[in-house]
Design a protein around this nucleic acid. Structure first.
Length: 208
DNA sequence: AGCTCGATGCGCT
DNA sequence: GCGCATCGAGCTA
């Protein structure tokens, strides 16, 4: 069985519906040093301009431009002055939506991945967070706008064995202070590479 | 195993 | 200016 790329058509759906396609899929990235592949085990849905947690909530800007492109493009953004996070664009067009790739298991190029993340004490910690995932793959701002459905692209997304519905769990998104009522973080139950869940909001609000 | 904090760039008010 | 879709070191147990 030869791996096949996911298609724009498959991804051009509501991000919540695309979760079952993304969980279990394999993102592969080339570099001069070699190839690393990661099996996605955790994602978060961001649902366009109606979602207060989405980068598109206040409309189109140079930064979120790629989220308005067609499905299958990679939206990479820079956070906290030192990290990158990657999203796969869904829907596209007038209703920008995306799935943030939050965690995965390294399935190829493990040695290269280890060299890129020496802090990881176990292989399951190589990509157990959105910025770590970008680190092991070598994904940076230069990959913003890449088409992961194109075999010629340096970053490609392959269909994986479907994860059983009963193995998909959901909960509130991480690091978000709004829309806590929607459980749009999804993960593969039992994967050791699911990111650490940080409970409780931020620090307690000081009394007036 | 859990929390706190600092590092650091940049998009937006 | 403020506040992040974060990570890792350093601490308390």
């Amino acid at each position: 069985m030869t791996p096949r790329l996911l298609t724009e058509q498959e991804l051009a759906v509501d991000p919540v519906d695309a979760v079952r396609l993304l969980l279990g899929s394999v993102l592969e990235a080339d570099s001069p040093d070699g190839v690393v592949g990661v099996r996605i085990v955790e994602v978060e849905a961001y649902r366009g301009e109606d979602d207060p947690a989405s980068h598109c909530f206040r409309g189109r800007t140079p930064r979120n431009e790629v989220m308005y492109w067609s499905a299958g493009h990679l939206y990479v953004y820079f956070v906290y002055g030192m990290h990158f996070c990657a999203n796969v664009v869904c829907l596209g067009e007038d209703r920008p939506g995306a799935l943030l790739l939050r965690a995965g298991e390294v399935v190829s190029g493990v040695d290269l991945a280890r060299s890129r993340r020496p802090a990881a004490r176990r292989d399951s910690e190589l990509a157990n967070g959105p910025a770590k995932l970008c680190d092991v793959l070598g994904v940076t701002r230069t990959h913003n706008g890449s088409d992961v459905t194109d075999a010629r692209s340096s970053v490609r997304l392959f269909a994986g064995d479907p994860v059983a519905e009963t193995d998909i769990r959901s909960g509130p998104r991480v690091g978000i202070a709004v829309a806590m009522d929607v459980p749009w973080r999804f993960w593969v139950d039992g994967s050791p590479a699911v990111s650490a869940y940080r409970r409780g909001g931020k620090r307690p609000i000081p009394a007036p």
